[in-house]
Design a protein around this nucleic acid. Structure first.
Lengths: 137, 137
DNA sequence: ATCAATACGTTATAGCATAACACTGCTGCA
DNA sequence: TGCAGCAGTGTTATGCTATAACGTATTGAT
């Protein structure tokens, strides 16, 4: 099911180009990686990419990986995911696996309730080696 | 109990200066913030700070907050914490609360077992507003 | 005393992100 | 019709974060 992404129709040209690039990438891309891939399409400045990324992230079509300063397309075809998403980043091949866990989210909610902290968003990034890379080693 | 930190005796001068700075800060500091605070002590280059930070983080005396590109002193006096630590970062006052949750860690372990992913380290950062800032609003 | 390992200091550079400004094209509404 | 407002665009310049590459100094074990 790889690359089986839905591309919304109401994106601007730049947003579409950036999301398309992320959809076809096997691993996270930095904004500058994206820019380099899109120079042939006429993009010239980092801001063009960052602005598109901002919108895509805002809409949940892409995610920012804080520990990499890089971005991935959302893996969920319908991109309706709310709440906590965890990312498992393989340091061998660079691939990212995205998953949600209700138990973790609930646990976090309990902690928040107990301390009076109001959670606005959470990033959870797991670094390690994926099964495939472990086998290969 | 604020600022009730233990300072190991086997740190180098730069490491001690950097850790001291983090210990006295009310909120996370970037490497360049630290550098500016330590110019009076003779530090001149980012690398002096980054090298000290590397060692401190390696020893668990400080933590890096990926979503801020900033650093905090470890809140645990004995700094023996292993495994997953979650950070709750208040966007009002900037304060960071550090906590560990065995259930989340176990849950993560289960996911790893099921997928064959080998976890090396995990960062979990929660953005929101602390109880105090909510009251003040 | 020698060697290896670690830390240090410095300059230069790479990589990530945003400020500020001018302009375009669209929507809606007086 | 015309204008106000908004979102998106393009461009230049700049700021913040992090590391490469070099040489020197200090430490500690044998």
């Amino acid at each position: 099911m790889a690359h089986d992404h839905v591309m919304p129709t109401d994106l601007t040209r730049n947003q579409e180009l950036v999301l398309g690039t992320l959809n076809h990438a096997p691993a996270p891309l930095s904004a500058y990686d994206i820019l380099d891939l899109l120079r042939s399409e006429g993009l010239r400045a980092p801001l063009q990419v960052y602005r598109a990324l901002d919108k895509l992230v805002e809409r949940g079509l892409a995610h920012r990986l804080e520990s990499l300063n890089a971005f991935v397309a959302c893996a969920d075809e319908h991109c309706h995911r709310k709440g906590l998403i965890a990312f498992a980043i393989c340091e061998g091949c660079g691939k990212v696996d995205e998953f949600a866990d209700a138990v973790i989210e609930e646990r976090l909610g309990k902690w928040a309730g107990a301390t009076g902290f109001k959670v606005e968003r959470t990033t959870m990034e797991i670094r390690g080696k994926c099964a495939e890379c472990l086998k290969a080693a």
